[in-house]
Every structure is written in structure tokens, then in C-alpha cells.
């Protein structure tokens, strides 16, 4: 039942043997040892499993790995230097247990691509599909705004 699929993962061409039922987050963990996307609620509600496929954020726990074939997959592990969003999350203390953090960072990058100067309402709506049980929400709003400022300055 397994078949080989090819895709680009964080900029590199890769292939993996996947079964039809396997989700993208399972394949990232089991075949590539990438654990930044992680299943939590299992229902696409919490955002812990966020992965970017072909430039759009998806819930990796609801996304069949087969659908990534031929695509461009990007995870929190991409890149070797911190970007403005990651720096802002650190500086604003926007993380506690850290389990939801990669998802928030990937979503924030997408948010800032679409809305370079987001107001509170835009931030809240865009990130409403990510849950933080430690409830660092006020600090995350700060970080999004700080990251926006940092990105405008560079």
C-alpha cells in the first residue's frame, strides 16, 4: 500500500514512502525527524501541527501526506537563522510551554505577508485558529506588532 512520493522539504528535494492514510505531520516526524509540527487536538483547531504547503498554512494532522506530492513543504525547522517573527516572540515573552509556538510563528509569518501592518482585530482573527493553553495571547499580539515593525525596518 505504501508508495513513494517526492516533494521539496525546507528547500531540499526529498522522497518518502507513505501509506494513503498517513498524515503530513506523521511523515514529517517519522520519516524526517522533524518534530516542530506536532499533533495535539487532532482536529485542526489548535494549530500545533501547522505546516506550510505551497505557500499556504495547513493543519498537518488533517492533511494527507500524499497530497504534498510534487509540492513545496516548509516547517518551523526551515532556515538556520532566527527571523523577525522568532526574535519578536522571544523578546516579548510570547511563549511559555512552547508546544503551540511553532504553529503561531508560522501563522504569524503568513499574517504579516498578507497584512504588513495588522491591527488587533486582524491579528485576533487571523490567529483565532491557534490555541495556547498557557494563554500567552496578549504577549503574542505584542510580538506580531514588534515583528511587523522589525520587518518594515529591514
Amino acid at each position: 500500500m505504501r508508495r513513494s512520493i517526492q516533494f521539496r522539504l525546507n528547500g531540499e528535494a526529498v522522497s518518502a514512502q507513505v501509506a494513503p492514510h498517513e498524515t503530513l505531520v506523521e511523515v514529517l516526524q517519522d520519516a524526517f525527524g522533524l518534530f516542530g509540527a506536532r499533533e495535539s487536538c487532532g482536529q485542526g483547531l489548535c494549530g500545533c501541527c501547522t505546516v506550510v504547503v505551497n505557500g499556504r498554512a495547513v493543519s498537518g494532522c488533517l492533511y494527507l501526506a500524499s497530497f504534498a506530492e510534487g509540492g513545496e513543504v516548509s516547517t518551523i525547522e526551515a532556515g538556520s537563522r532566527l527571523d523577525a517573527v522568532q526574535e519578536a516572540f522571544i523578546e516579548c515573552g510570547s511563549l511559555q510551554c512552547g508546544f503551540c509556538t511553532p504553529g503561531f510563528i508560522l501563522m504569524t509569518r503568513q499574517l504579516l505577508e498578507e497584512h504588513p501592518e495588522p491591527d488587533d482585530d486582524t491579528i485576533r482573527h487571523y490567529l483565532s485558529g491557534n490555541l495556547c493553553r498557557c494563554a500567552a495571547y496578549p504577549q503574542i499580539i505584542e510580538a506580531v506588532k514588534l515583528a511587523a515593525r522589525k520587518m518594515r525596518q529591514t
Binding site: 495547513v58 488533517l62 492533511y63 482573527h125
Partner: peptide, 12 residues
């Protein structure tokens, strides 16, 4: 659509 599920769901 703005308040339907969340951005990731609407993306897919």
C-alpha cells in the same frame, strides 16, 4: 468566510 473555521481550514 472570515469567521468560518480558521485560516488553515479555509486554505485547504
Amino acid at each position: 468566510l472570515r469567521t468560518l473555521a480558521n485560516v488553515r481550514v479555509r486554505n485547504v
